[in-house]
Design a binder for these strands. Sequence first.
DNA 1: TGAGCATGCACAATCGGTTGCGCACCGATG
DNA 2: CATCGGTGCGCAACCGATTGTGCATGCTCA
Lengths: 337, 337
Amino acid sequence: MVRLRDVAARAGVSLSVASRALTKDAAARISDETRARVEQAAAELNYVPDHRARALRLSRSGAIALVVPEVNNALFAAVHAGVHAVCTPRQISVLLGQIDPSDLGQGAALSSLIGNGRVDGVVLQRSEQFSDDDVSEVIDVDVPVILFNSSLPTHIGSVALDDRAAVQVAVEHLTSLGHRDVAYIGGPARHDAAFRRRAAFDQLAATGGLRTLPEWDVPGGWDAPAGHAAMTALLQASTRPTAVLVANINAAVGVLAAAAAQGVTVPRDLSVIAVHDTWIGAYTCPALTTVLLPMEEAGVRAATMLLDHLEGGALEDVVVAAPAPALVLRDSTAPPR
Amino acid sequence: MVRLRDVAARAGVSLSVASRALTKDAAARISDETRARVEQAAAELNYVPDHRARALRLSRSGAIALVVPEVNNALFAAVHAGVHAVCTPRQISVLLGQIDPSDLGQGAALSSLIGNGRVDGVVLQRSEQFSDDDVSEVIDVDVPVILFNSSLPTHIGSVALDDRAAVQVAVEHLTSLGHRDVAYIGGPARHDAAFRRRAAFDQLAATGGLRTLPEWDVPGGWDAPAGHAAMTALLQASTRPTAVLVANINAAVGVLAAAAAQGVTVPRDLSVIAVHDTWIGAYTCPALTTVLLPMEEAGVRAATMLLDHLEGGALEDVVVAAPAPALVLRDSTAPPR
DNA sequence: TGAGCATGCACAATCGGTTGCGCACCGATG
DNA sequence: CATCGGTGCGCAACCGATTGTGCATGCTCA
């Protein structure tokens, strides 16, 4: 490994001059000629500063952690893409973290993963399985944490999606098709994005004159098995809705499977629309009508805020409203019979 | 932040004794009483060693990189799970990397991401878009690289799946159902796992007396759009096969969609079986019959080999044969009409 | 009683960069 | 001619941990 010392020797200068020249320290008084000589020496030797040494000296590791409940999720990919896009040009690495619920309780769940200066900050997507207290425990580290699509009392620094707008797009699509009997299959009870969507639906249903029966109120979830179970339960209702709004596309995949299993033809017998859009939406049968949320942009916002904060910027709670949630019209919705 | 110095002071010993006591250096001559005192002090102060300093001193960063072509893939999740399972108990962090083809050529694609001692090693899943030369360029770093499910001439250190066995399971399932006219939709031409599967199919088809028409030989790929395109092309054939073996489940999702779009009913008109199994297989319509490969175990093997190698172990090229590829019987295969 | 040895601990170098400060040299000014 | 300010650069102290080596002390044995 070629060290700064080698560069300095080749350029015929001291370590300090070499360092200042290479870090482009404008305040340093170094002649242009010397600067050039150092840079050339560095180039010739193909010098790359040692991250470890720099990290130690600067108390900066040059990496952030992206912690998500499950990697196995197309939505995660979009968030990661956004974070990645911000970090790469800034020469920041992204550490991937996953917190298993089983890790909780023994204190320092995140801490063992990212503690001790391994990363400079964290973007944390809250798992549905974690309570407020769990999250509080997890984020008890000495680096800034941005909560992604999840909030926490007293915590500042979060990026959320415009859940209400997303639900509104879906509801308006259904009502414009003529639906009045709309069931809602939400996310996990504890998750606050799920809560926001639920609240938005309830309110929009009320003001929009939708009919929502108590028996349509079935427990939901974010994944396909949860959607399957919810739909199976929903189809037991004595009166069936003409449309179902599913809070998550992965759950909607399960919803479609359950409908097919029960002999319900979508969209003839039932319209299905889901929040979030991933590649799978185009390949279900029928292809899913969805609401596309700006996940990648949200990832960009989260990473940007975090990195800027490390440079002295302020933390805030933002809602990513642009681009606005957009209807992706496919084949799972139609006017009621 | 509490430093080793603080622990030493509290325990009333020097830095060196504190260090040796906490690292449980058996060779060091330290009285049991002193050891206990140091450990208690560390516990009271809630001391955690600084990763940066330790990394500098030991020339070890305590992290490895997991580089994959695309995070947006359920298969990746399984690999990650395996790697994660190995690394977590060893207190190793996993850095997530993604190499865009656009990064190539400017030298140091990986190097900027993981170079300079940021990680101690790399598990690299080769992208289909990279040539041998591209990969060679990418892995030109000064840390060990384990190639995952991809090989490279002259490179030692890889973990591959038993592609032949997987294809064999699929072929035997189809033949046992009575199929003779079987088309194969493979992966990208350059990818060597794709090559192995293709070769296995060709050989098994020949020995098994399968009929394979040249017009069934359509370009494939790993993802749903590729599968969709391949199936659409295949259905143009003057003679149609009675079954299709798809080299990847994601592609098979596209295959099913294309079949449905063309009015082909699976499995009545056509059986479809895919290599790899993910959650989506249970939710397509019809649910996909697949061959489950030990992806997580492969991730475990890769990470284990890498970490052991850092301790002096040897690198080798292994094929993960156990658990053996297993048929996951669902609804997309049936006897030919 | 003194040599010899094991024990228990501390000193100081080291990893590779960054940075506050001081030193030497220059031309300019009074 | 002495002083002053600016310029260009190097010395050395860090960051926090690990580790080779050396120095006491206390014991045993001749």
